[in-house]
Design a protein around this nucleic acid. Sequence first.
DNA 1: CTTGACTCCCAAAACGTTTTGGACAATCGT
DNA 2: ACGATTGTCCAAAACGTTTTGGGAGTCAAG
Lengths: 336, 336
Amino acid sequence: MANLKQLAQSLGLSITTVSRALDGYADVSAVTRERVREAADKVGYRPNASARRLRKQRAELVAVTLPSDPGHIGPPHFLDMLSGCAEHLAAAGLNLVIAPVPRGESELDICRRFVDGRRVDAMLLVRTKRKDERVEFLQSRGIPFVTNGRTESLMPHPYIDGDGFAGFRAATLRFHAAGHRRIGHIAGPQEYYFAHDRCRGWRAAMEECDLATDLCAEGAPLEQGGYLAALELLRQPSRPTALVCATDEMAIGALRALREVDGGNQISIVGHDDLPMGAFTSPPLSTMRMTGEHLGASFASLLLRAIGGEPAEELQELHVIEFVDRDSHRRPLRAA
Amino acid sequence: MANLKQLAQSLGLSITTVSRALDGYADVSAVTRERVREAADKVGYRPNASARRLRKQRAELVAVTLPSDPGHIGPPHFLDMLSGCAEHLAAAGLNLVIAPVPRGESELDICRRFVDGRRVDAMLLVRTKRKDERVEFLQSRGIPFVTNGRTESLMPHPYIDGDGFAGFRAATLRFHAAGHRRIGHIAGPQEYYFAHDRCRGWRAAMEECDLATDLCAEGAPLEQGGYLAALELLRQPSRPTALVCATDEMAIGALRALREVDGGNQISIVGHDDLPMGAFTSPPLSTMRMTGEHLGASFASLLLRAIGGEPAEELQELHVIEFVDRDSHRRPLRAA
DNA sequence: CTTGACTCCCAAAACGTTTTGGACAATCGT
DNA sequence: ACGATTGTCCAAAACGTTTTGGGAGTCAAG
């Protein structure tokens, strides 16, 4: 309610002493410190955030950009993640602001606004592209940041990502082991790192098994994109018997295509993300998900350590992808 | 990159003039104004946010508290709403910070921290209780705020809410018109306004139809809560033939109970929220939802107007609830 | 008695803006 | 020709902290 000046005056002390008392410095006597603290508690004094931020040259804020294209804030637990991240940041005195991208502006514009206006101490980026201009900008400005997803940037930067390559390779090999030979891939837009990574995983497995890698169709990372891509694969002279889909949303679209074209239930399918909705599709959608508890806390920790100046190489987490087996990945395999 | 002092020096002007030129004041000549603007653009000058905030005594921030109890950030479009709200606030120079409630702290503590530390110009509250201490606190401090959901506060405050009473009354009357006579209600925790409001709507309809209002069970606003409450109602000597559920999550839990107890498909059911998942349950869940496009924009607008000093009475929006008819509300009605 | 160390406190500077209250010329009205 | 007005500009104050660089006073050792 009050400010430092008033509080100091009412105590007959200087502003300096009151400030230092509240910060627990040793150069103010224990008795004075206690007296100051009690008085501060009584009037409910809280330092003015703007003033402290100006003086300390820290914004006490971290921004996360929210891509506004539909389907791009995919993971259902995204808000939980943000919430967890914000909670752990708050414990360190930082608040998390969400920065959606208005139409007509790029994510880069947003970064610029926040960084150059000294509005944030760090940034959190999601849905990275292989060549990501936001990453390049932040690196050039030297401001700490963490990405959800890797990039192909030459300079290392902090990230948390799932090992999509290994996950999709393993999923493909599993289909191969189950007898499948025509395994298709429904890919996301290849400029995104995650989409490209997953595609590479599928391709690597196919090559290891000496199988052709032509059963690949790309689409938007949405239900509709998966639907269209699946239709494309189903038009091939030699249809796939199994589909590895870049995302659950695309897998659900693919399921719709299967239902229309071959009555469903003929082709095995697996997605990625573990959308809750997947448990309710028919057949229930088998999927994959990144391991790791309390992802929000990890992001917060990485952000804080990045702000603290730790080198980027030590701030990279690559998480194992695990299978979530439901039903859709083991449709009966019929002879070719 | 630079600050006002350096910019002024490089132009041979005073700080004052540069500042006013950038703000477009008329008392700096058009030619100087243009010269300043160009120079500012060239070096990418952006005023330091903390300094401006301190001087203008405005935080340029709005906080939204995120309840951390599971199931309490229910609506799937919640993040979209926040995103829309943040986007429109940003157009007015305000950023939205998300403030989850750490364990061991109350939402009231959070409000206190933000308000007394002058960290925000306004707050956004979700999931109001009938008697909501956060609302009382903010009113006592005189800080602008908007709630998602009404309260029973004596002093009016800005809100956006769905007319749960009318919605649940209408849903119940619809069941009555379809021949149902034993219509149960699965209620949420009655300390929440929305839960109480919806319960009142059901009760009002039942009384209008001269039906007993004993088929009511309360549970946590989660799948499990709905499951348990449904089991309770199904144990009654005279079972309900239709269920009106406070939320979709509870309705989904109730569906599970029905499946276990009577093989499903015997009892009509309707929920509220229009969770995407509802389209995938069996039977597909009929539900209700609040009308209104661009809810985030509405919240932002109300917040800005509240900050602008408009009286609370003019900042209240009560939205009509509409039906989303799928299948679960018209199970065949069997003789008693 | 001097010196140094130590304890407790404080005045003033600094952070980077915005705003107040003019200063100084040039122009205008009469 | 003179006061009033207008058009440009600026010095300084203010916002509320934190931090710097001491200033007294006390005490113990030399």
